[in-house]
C-alpha cells in the first residue's frame, strides 16, 4: 500500500489546498505497527500523517453522522464496505452525495490482530502487508509469509465487494473479490444445526454480552439519536444484564440491521466478549437478499427493504 498512501496524501493535499473539501477523514499511525487511529486533516500539512495499512479497521463513515451542510464538503477514505455504508446512508437520506468526497481504496482485506498474535509476537511486528493470497509480516527476524485465509478478518475473508462502488476518486487498482459468490461456511454450519442446538449456541453467547453497546457505537448504520436499548420512554429493555435481556437486545439489533447491514465486520471486531454478531447480520442479509432481492449499499435509490413492500412478497406462515 505505500504507493496508495503517497497517492492518498497527494490527493488530500490537493483537495484541501484547492478548497474542494474542508476536512479529510482518514487514518494515521496508531500506537503500534498493527494499529491505526482516525485522522482529521484540515490543512495540506496534516495530510503527511495519513496512512493506509491492513489495520485500517475503524469505519470512518461513523463520523458522517450529524454532518451539517454548513460544515462544507468532507473527504472520506473509504474501503469497499465503507463505500457501501455511505450508499446505504444515502438511500436512507441521512446525508446527501454532495456533502462527501469519497476517496476509494480497493481493499485486499484487513488483518485480524488476534489471529496475528497467534502466529507471531505482536511486540516484534514491524510491518504487515497483504498481497493477494499471502500476508507478509516483517519482524526483526525477517519476513514471514502466511496464507491470507488464516490472518484476515472473517468479514474480509468473505468479502464480496472489496472495491468501493461509488467514489469520486479511486486510489490504486481494483482487486479481485475474495468471495465473489458470497459463500459462508460458518453460517452454513449454523444453519445445518437443529434449532435446539442453535438456541443453545446463541443463548450461551448472549449470556456473555455485557451490553457495553460497542457494537452500536461502531456501526455505520446505527444512527438513532437514542438506541432502543437505552431508551427510557418507552423502556424496551430492563437495565439488567441477563441472558434474556441480552437476547432481546441482540435480536432487536439484528432486526434493525436486516437489509441494512453492509458487513463491515465492525461489531464483530469491537465486541469484547466475541459474540457471533457477524453471523447474525450475515444471516439477515442473506434472508433479505433471497426474499426481496436486496443487497444493502449497492443502490442509493432503493429504500431499505423493510421500509417498503411488494404485493408479490412471500406470504405469512410460509416456511419453517
Amino acid at each position: 500500500m505505500p504507493n496508495q498512501t503517497d497517492q492518498l496524501r497527494q490527493s488530500c493535499r490537493r483537495l484541501l489546498s484547492e478548497g474542494t473539501v474542508t476536512k479529510v477523514i482518514g487514518y494515521r499511525e496508531g500506537r503500534a505497527p498493527y494499529h491505526v487511529s482516525p485522522h482529521f486533516a484540515t490543512t495540506p500539512e496534516d495530510c503527511d500523517a495519513l496512512v493506509l495499512t491492513p489495520f485500517c479497521t475503524q469505519n470512518l463513515v461513523r463520523y458522517l453522522r450529524g454532518l451539517k451542510p454548513e460544515e462544507g464538503k468532507v473527504a472520506l477514505v473509504v474501503k469497499g464496505c465503507d463505500a457501501r455504508a455511505v450508499t446505504a446512508l444515502l438511500a436512507e437520506h441521512q446525508l446527501t452525495r454532495d456533502q462527501v468526497y469519497l476517496l476509494g481504496v480497493p481493499c485486499e482485506g484487513l488483518v485480524d490482530v488476534d489471529k496475528l498474535a497467534q502466529k507471531v509476537r505482536l511486540a516484534e511486528v514491524q510491518a504487515v502487508r497483504v498481497e493477494g493470497q499471502m500476508v507478509l509480516v516483517t519482524t526483526a527476524a525477517g519476513e514471514q509469509r502466511f496464507p491470507a485465509e488464516d490472518l484476515l478478518e472473517d468479514c474480509c475473508r468473505l468479502c464480496q465487494y472489496p472495491n468501493p462502488l461509488v467514489v469520486d476518486e479511486m486510489l490504486g487498482e481494483e482487486v479481485t473479490p475474495r468471495n465473489p459468490d458470497g459463500e459462508d461456511a460458518e453460517l452454513a454450519r449454523l444453519e445445518a444445526m437443529s434449532p435446539a442446538e442453535r438456541q443453545e449456541y446463541f443463548r450461551r453467547a448472549f449470556s456473555r454480552c455485557v451490553r457495553c453497546y460497542a457494537c452500536v457505537r461502531t456501526c455505520p448504520m446505527c444512527y438513532c439519536t437514542t438506541c432502543f436499548a437505552v431508551q427510557n420512554k418507552p423502556q424496551w429493555l430492563p437495565r439488567t444484564v441477563g441472558t434474556d435481556e441480552n437476547e432481546m437486545f441482540q435480536l432487536g439489533r439484528a432486526m434493525h440491521l436486516a437489509g441494512r447491514c453492509v458487513q463491515c465486520g465492525g461489531c464483530d471486531r469491537v465486541c469484547p466478549v466475541n459474540l457471533p454478531l457477524r453471523l447474525l447480520n450475515a444471516k439477515m442479509a442473506k434472508e433479505v437478499q433471497e426474499a426481496y432481492a436486496h443487497v444493502s449499499g449497492l443502490d442509493a435509490e432503493k429504500p431499505p427493504p423493510l421500509a417498503t413492500f411488494d404485493s408479490q412478497d412471500r406470504d405469512a406462515g410460509e416456511g419453517h
Partner: peptide, 12 residues
C-alpha cells in the same frame, strides 16, 4: 417474515 427467519435462526 424477516423476524420469523431471525427467531428461527436464533433457535426459538
Amino acid at each position: 417474515t424477516m423476524l420469523n427467519e431471525l427467531l428461527h435462526f436464533a433457535g426459538i
